[in-house]
Design a protein around this nucleic acid. Structure first.
Lengths: 215, 215
DNA sequence: AGTTATGAGTGGTCAGACCACTTTGAAATA
DNA sequence: TATTTCAAAGTGGTCTGACCACTCATAACT
């Protein structure tokens, strides 16, 4: 059952045993795990081995450790996995073009999702944005961010935030009158639920931004 | 620059420094990293701290260690991250759904990209797939993967590979006759460049897979 | 009662010691 | 000379014991 001085990968075994322990003892999110020293004794391994397993889980965002307090099961729905892998991945495929395209893909899909949903497309927030667009200055990213959030896919939201950081921020600018006009049409288009024309408006807006990038 | 005996999270710092080291020294996939003892000396930390960082990266599948040989940069899309995280985390139905939806978004966009491109939509590979579909068994993921690859966005490709691992592999199955029929239509539809009907075929195919998941 | 000091418990780090394994190259052998 | 053997060096895997820095509960003191 317990691979002791066997070949390789004790710490992986510990990771699994930790998972089992969490399940068996019904450790709730935010709940406390046994201390490193106690785990070492219970699992019959050295503390350093326990730590290697714990540190791995911490890097994955599965647990959280607070010096002087202990180790806690963290809310893994905020998995920082994405951030981690992104630092490794984005460095390699550093083509700005790819980042742009991928981000636009996510944005388009969010627009679609809202458009075809009866509830989301009639969300009161669009009305407040319509008022804003008509009366004050609006940041480009503000409205896009809201669309991604409302479309309710946390993973997409995470990725989008990351890509936005790498993208060199044309979204930090204020909208021109022309852009505002497009967005007013777009938000109104939500209510009609016409996917194609809504997407066309979004693409139209993208074209404005891109032409600006060139100049 | 170097946070020495500072508060908390030294090993996270080491993770970053390792990433930088890999980039600076241009360690290729499969290439060898410095030994733990050498890293400890170079980064001016204890060996156990280095190990905690390395073990974390190993659990992520970013590196591979072989006792007696050394530590090697591995192909990140391998390794057990999958089953571990799926047993730990992705039980959350919402997370699962988010992963699915995001993956489908990327796939749809790849289909669109190919469809609207004169060059890509006429790529000879689609003809060979048509033959394959008519004559032999085809894995679901094979054809999807090719579509993502041809659509030529490396970032999307990387994200897609990761998501695919999380998805619990309905894509590892062979296509039914019904599915093959849809794909034959879809590939033919590439040549017509009709985006809407092509996407509809893809969505039709998704529906088949989803209905199978339920049963 | 309110404040302060102390000690126990916890994670963070280090150094040194073995072990198990692989590679390497020199010595022994054919 | 060519081959085999094996001992040493190098590497990851693990354990131990020792500090440090921090938190918290509680005892001690005002």
């Amino acid at each position: 059952m317990i691979p002791k001085n066997n070949s390789s990968k004790m710490f992986l075994e510990i990771v699994k045993q930790l998972r089992d322990l969490i399940n068996e003892e019904n450790v709730a999110v935010g709940g406390k795990l046994p201390s490193e020293r106690e785990l070492a004794e219970r699992l019959q391994v050295g503390r350093s081995t326990v730590r290697e397993a714990l540190r791995s889980l911490e890097l994955l965002g599965l647990i959280e450790t607070r010096r002087g307090e202990g180790t806690f099961l963290s809310d893994y729905r905020k998995h920082q996995l994405v951030e981690l892998l992104s630092t490794f991945i984005l460095q390699e495929s550093k083509s700005k073009e790819d980042v742009h395209k991928t981000r636009e893909t996510l944005e388009k899909e969010a627009v679609r999702t809202i458009c075809v949903s009866d509830t989301l497309s009639k969300h009161s927030i669009w009305d407040s944005f319509l008022i804003k667009l008509n009366t004050e200055e609006v940041l480009r990213e503000d409205i896009i961010r809201e669309i991604i959030i409302i479309s309710d896919n946390r993973l997409t939201l995470k990725i989008w935030f990351l890509l936005k950081q790498f993208a060199g921020e044309p979204y930090k600018k204020l909208m021109s009158l022309e852009e505002k006009d497009i967005w007013i049409q777009l938000l109104n288009s939500f209510k009609n639920g016409d996917e194609v024309s809504t997407i066309n408006l979004y693409i139209q807006w993208l074209a404005i931004i891109q032409s600006e990038q060139i100049s």
